[in-house]
Design a protein around this nucleic acid. Structure first.
Lengths: 224, 224
DNA sequence: TGTACATCAGTGAACGCGCGTTCACTGATGTAC
DNA sequence: TGTACATCAGTGAACGCGCGTTCACTGATGTAC
């Protein structure tokens, strides 16, 4: 007797969505694509076939929900930008003062890059698929950078002993450059380096920029 | 009458090497691969077919000189590492004092990245092909980083008013992180940013780290 | 000086692979009567 | 309650492409005699 609906060996069983619930496959596809992207760290290395296989579906099914690969990637990247932004905001929210908030925000950024190097690369390094951030005014990463600028500004407002006359925008940029440099070079794994802990580098940078709580006890804020 | 040795239309004419001069194709292949790599900025996007076509030869010819694609890439990357190292050394050599030398070295680094983003990416960001830097002790980029450490050390020896107790290794790392962060994010073209000139960022970083000539006239060295 | 031959740089055709995408289809689900 | 039918989620086979690499080969170059 013929078995009914036995899936091909090796493919995960997957119940077919009911009428009107096809959109569930859509979110499963985005989730699977996101997971695979975290592994490969490059949109060019993510294949539609792999996404379909991960969900337990055949490749053409994807095209019922996304016009093409780029559309799928756009959905994934927008999710990841939103997730990163929320993650950093929450980390900063748990702080007591602006200096602690800035530090926690940065640490969360560094941790995101270390824990999810594939996603970090796709957001910040790899070639962006067309359709993500095409309009500079509405780049999905812009709010995140401006959150950093705001965090720096709050430190200045709180009396940070910024040694220089730089504005919060330039200071935020300097922090970002150091942070990105650190995590990107580490992710690359190209240099067998005795990398210092990310936290040590961050503290050095914040101290150099004067973005630490004003010292009331006379001890210097710098050094590592 | 039949024309002799008329090449297929569209392929550049190329004289066949004489007996014993086959090695000339080898260097032509490395040069062509290097040029193409500068364009695509990713070893995965460099195809053997494209290299062969650029030289005016058929793909199998490459295999007479290189065991496989990886071997060709190794040859290209070693050339580029050597070139970068020499370039930076020459830039620093034209300086009058250690502070100027450090600054010129860094500027040359930033300029290399801006003028040849594809090569920069391949050296510092993209996944390294196996065979380049596999042995951490002899990574082709190591001498370049240590040249930066030395340049910083010479500034310390010359009395740089380093505000912190950090050693030259850590200071060099900080410079590198900022510089890499800057050029890598700019190369990515992901963020429609009013990027400040690379020189302005460099001067801010060097000032923050106290790696500027000791002020004899009382004016502060920092700021922008 | 002439000829047979070994050498070797490079060729032409093909291989198997994975890719994004298209197409006509199947068959379960829900609905109208 | 039963049946014909429209809907729609998902399938199976195939397309054309570019890729790295292999293989048997061609034909010009230099050399031995």
């Amino acid at each position: 007797m013929r078995q009914r609906r036995s899936p091909p060996a090796g493919r995960p069983t997957r119940a077919r969505a009911r009428r009107g619930e096809g959109h569930r496959l859509r979110s499963e596809l985005v989730a699977a694509a996101s997971d695979l992207l975290a592994e490969v760290g490059d949109t060019n290395r993510l294949s539609m076939r792999a996404v379909a296989a991960a969900v337990g579906v055949t490749p053409p099914s994807i095209y019922r929900h996304f016009e093409d690969k780029q559309a799928l990637l756009v959905a994934v990247l927008e999710d990841r930008w939103a997730e990163l932004h929320e993650l950093l905001g929450k980390a900063a929210a748990s702080a007591d003062d602006p200096f602690d908030a800035l530090r926690r925000w940065c640490l969360a950024y560094l941790r995101f890059a270390e824990e999810r190097p594939g996603h970090y690369r796709v957001l910040f390094s790899a070639a962006a698929p067309a359709g993500v951030g095409d309009d500079p005014e509405h780049h999905p990463g812009a709010p995140t950078f401006f959150a950093l600028v705001d965090a720096v500004q709050r430190c200045l407002d709180a009396g940070a002993c910024a040694a220089t006359a730089r504005d919060s925008w330039f200071l935020a940029l300097q922090i970002w450059l150091s942070g990105h440099g650190l995590v990107d070079l580490r992710i690359g794994q190209r240099f067998a380096f005795p990398w210092p802990p990310a936290e040590a580098v961050l503290d050095a940078v914040l101290a150099d920029l004067g973005l630490v709580a004003p010292a009331h006890d006379g001890s210097p804020g710098g050094g590592r």
